[in-house]
Design a protein around this nucleic acid. Sequence first.
RNA 1: GGCCCGUUGGUGAAGUGGUUGAACACACAUGCCUUUCACGCAUGCAUUCAUGGGUUCAAAUCCCGUACGGGUCACCA
Length: 545
Amino acid sequence: MTRKEYSELLVPNVEHDVNYYEEKYPKRDLKVGEMVTRFAPSPTGFVHMGSLYASFVDLVMARQTNGIAMLRIEDTDQKREVENGIEGIVNDFKNLGINFNEGPSFGGNYGPYVQSERGDIYRAYVRKLIEEDKAYPCFCTPEELEETRNIQELEKARIGYYGTWAKCRSLTMEEAIEKVKNGEKYIIRLKSPGNFNNKVVLHDLIKGNIEMPENDMDIVILKSDNLPTYHFAHAVDDHLMHTTNVIRGDEWVSSWNVHEQLFKVLGFEMPAYAHISPLTVKEGNTVRKISKRKDPWAAVSYYHQKGIPTEVIDLYLATINNSTFESWYLQNPDKGINDFEFEFDKCPIGGTLFDIQKLISISKVYFSALKASKLYEGVLEYTEKYDLEFHELLKKYKEYMINVLNIEREIPRPRRDISAYEDVRKFTWYMFDELYFKEAKFNLEKKYNIELLKDYVNNYYNESDSKEEWFNKIKELAPKYGYAAETKAYKQEPEKYVGSIGDICEAIRVAVTSLTMTPDLYEILKNLGKERIIKRINFFEESNK
RNA sequence: GGCCCGUUGGUGAAGUGGUUGAACACACAUGCCUUUCACGCAUGCAUUCAUGGGUUCAAAUCCCGUACGGGUCACCA
């Protein structure tokens, strides 16, 4: 039997050979510097902050070099797969407004972009390796493997399938054929040419040079389910898809020597690598990787629900990804992420603690810079999904709401109170009669002079007053009820007055909004209008009885 | 345990041998301003860069050891 026939016996039913695939996926027509990147998640759950972070780097590097970002689903472990996992990932990205150049449902000429659909491709390359005597069948059972592991532990030897521990490695072709004919189960392993005592130096775009021993493990490349392991699929896919830059989590650096060897054995050119540090979270005294199950705020759906836009998340990710981004953005507030040039060597090397405070702060700045009409559109869209009652009010009072949202907005330093669309109701609900008369709760402990309030609105307040006139009228009113017209005067001799002008404003504010803290009172009154102010003061009076 | 990587304030960090008295941003604290909150302004927050040693005229920056933290050692990715 020739080696070719041998490989066909071991890996049956493969339609094409490697030459077919090499021709089918020709080199990409790239200009110098254009990067082809790929984000390669397993469909084991939905997209979360950690994966978003990794994909952000892929997307950004491809876009700024005018290259290509692919989405590739790594579903060679069918046991772990979640129902609708692939759809879930694709939809999450689409909902976030994130588009890849290539990938499932994104198109592209180098697909399929789902590994479970690429079985034949991998098998063709496995066959090639067997033919060249660079891979061999292994008939060891899980029990046998377990046993050698125990012995290795006992002897304090390195654990794994290598050297003399690799029993099946020395099997002759005839012995192997015999076993196959007897129906023995097998998988395919790499015949590692490496020597543990040799060192390989691998260059990482982020971490710099990393030196480690050569791989000498005869790792599994084709599993009993006829699908490849990650390592093998990685080499074949990134070769065939012509990835120029492999950007992945740094949990992969420890198996990097395996990948390096695989590329060499397969005769592939190695892409450049960038291993990004994980997003971490502090738990007690320890730090751990972000987890979707333990950290609810890690799921992207969390941001969706709160109404934190993708732009904000991107800004945050940009901030932690490139140390110089933040100060650049501060100096160029009119520019965006697309105008900034990200560099691998500016990426964090150790783990990055996820800081929700920082994200919220970025969000507040983002919202404060939004035009009222744009904010309105956003809230409208958000509430349609999460708060229908408010949504209806917004539709009904469009112009009014835009005016309300514009209070203290078009000024050099706008308010920074809104951090998510869900906050908008919290800050504006009292401006709607439908909500005010239903939900206003007054603190009845504190007594306010209702007579003063009525006097004020009936005899002093005028909708057409300028802000200065408005304020002067309150000053005018103050002495009549024993209040100090000037804050300073009150501070100097508090015993001479019932209160200061600030207390009058507080009374008006509470009566009209039920709150002690609101944006500019003058603007609020103006938007409410005299009639509604009167109604509210009456309501306030009733509530205090 | 083996092999990798990391360690600058509450957080993210700047920094690659000498204008660093260790930027900047977030957070926090105090005060001022003020119709509230916010904004703004002012001030405070690492006598020191995990630690011990070495190289050097000079070290957060280079070298070695130690401690601590993280990753990884599957027919999982």
